[in-house]
Write a protein that binds this DNA or RNA. Structure first.
Lengths: 195, 195
DNA sequence: TGCTGATGACTGAACCGCGGTTCATTCTAC
DNA sequence: GTAGAATGAACCGCGGTTCAGTCATCAGCA
């Protein structure tokens, strides 16, 4: 019987290897060595090299969205939910530097991901953000005339850029320190005035 | 004598080819065909395939920053300058769809660009944004306690994400329509209150 | 003006290294 | 003994790069 833990082990090895060398500069044999198996074995569990990256991303993104959903549900106040999302976004990346490297830098290869295989997973994350903003509008805490889709993309883009800068800057500071200012600036931008 | 227009022609051809097929799926011979020359000729003007992408990006980014600097200088009010930057950012991309495709999707390959060759050009753009925010603080229009670097990255990230979504969504709407909401939300987030 | 040789841009077929993938063989567990 | 998981050397297609040959241009000369 095929080892059910092996795909996971391969994905974990791939994250380390891609973080170190980048996707295009990593050989399948490098991943195999990192995982302590033969290169041919990888093809028992993954169709192609691309398939490793796609499944890596899908798996991590699904975990991420599930975590965010859970934490957001535990919060009452819509504005606190936004703060929670930002804090979580930065905390997950800070605590998983290899994953951060792959997600922020390597995973932007061509169309393949954001346009292709994982569009669904990414838009699930957008949906979470947008729902929270909708709640905020319903509760009268967020401007009723807010362009929701634009605001959603802005928040994601802002977090994403902070994360990318942090990764490219060799993680020289604590990303989580940016959570408070990011959330504050964004919230000031979208909330109703006299509150 | 070497044709001084040829590098430009090659870069323009490369933009079209990369926009169509992506960087890694484009052969040097594809670029040559698009430019109407032989593949070997490219190596008279460019050291390697990577060199094409690096110089393409540097050239376009330098043009971009120069344009933004000029337009910003023509404006007095710091807040109007921010609005100008956002409008320009979106307008340039909207008017150059092939360039937009390359910049938003293809140019994110691995470390090579944002970490490597073109870090300087990118940070010049960041500097423009940050200077404007500083002016705003000096003029009392922007909150004095604003985390400038964070706000700068947030604005860039927000614009970048809107642009990326627009490109990935096959440019189904007018990107410039997003300029007003993006600028308004951002400005509401960073300006001093009672103004 | 027409001829000639030199210069160097241009060409594109062929080369060659790389690395993803395969598969004949070996190993392991039951 | 057997099924099927694992191995890893070898295969092979791809495409970036090279370079020997071709062609265009022009200065010098009769």
């Amino acid at each position: 019987m095929r080892d059910p833990d092996k795909p996971q082990a391969i994905i974990d090895a791939a994250i380390r290897v891609f973080a170190r060398n980048g996707y295009y500069n990593s050989r399948v044999s490098d991943i195999a060595r990192e995982a302590g198996i033969a290169s041919g074995t990888i093809y028992l569990y993954f169709k192609t090299k691309d398939d490793i990256l796609v499944r890596l991303f899908r798996e991590k993104m699904a975990e991420w969205v599930a975590l965010v959903r859970k934490e957001v549900a535990a919060e009452r106040d819509p504005l606190a939910k936004i703060r929670k999302i930002v804090a979580l976004h930065f905390r997950v990346l800070q605590e998983n530097p290899d994953l951060a490297e792959v997600v922020q830098v390597e995973l932007r290869q061509g169309n393949k991901f954001f346009r292709g295989a994982s569009a669904h997973e990414v838009s699930a994350y957008f949906d979470v953000i947008q729902s929270v903003l909708e709640e905020g509008v319903a509760a009268g805490r967020v401007r009723r005339d807010l362009a929701l889709k634009v605001a959603t993309k802005m928040l994601f883009g802002a977090m994403d850029q902070l994360a990318t800068s942090w990764v490219l800057g060799k993680r020289a500071y604590r990303l989580t320190d940016a959570a408070e200012p990011v959330a504050s600036i964004f919230l000031k931008g979208v909330t109703t005035d006299g509150v």
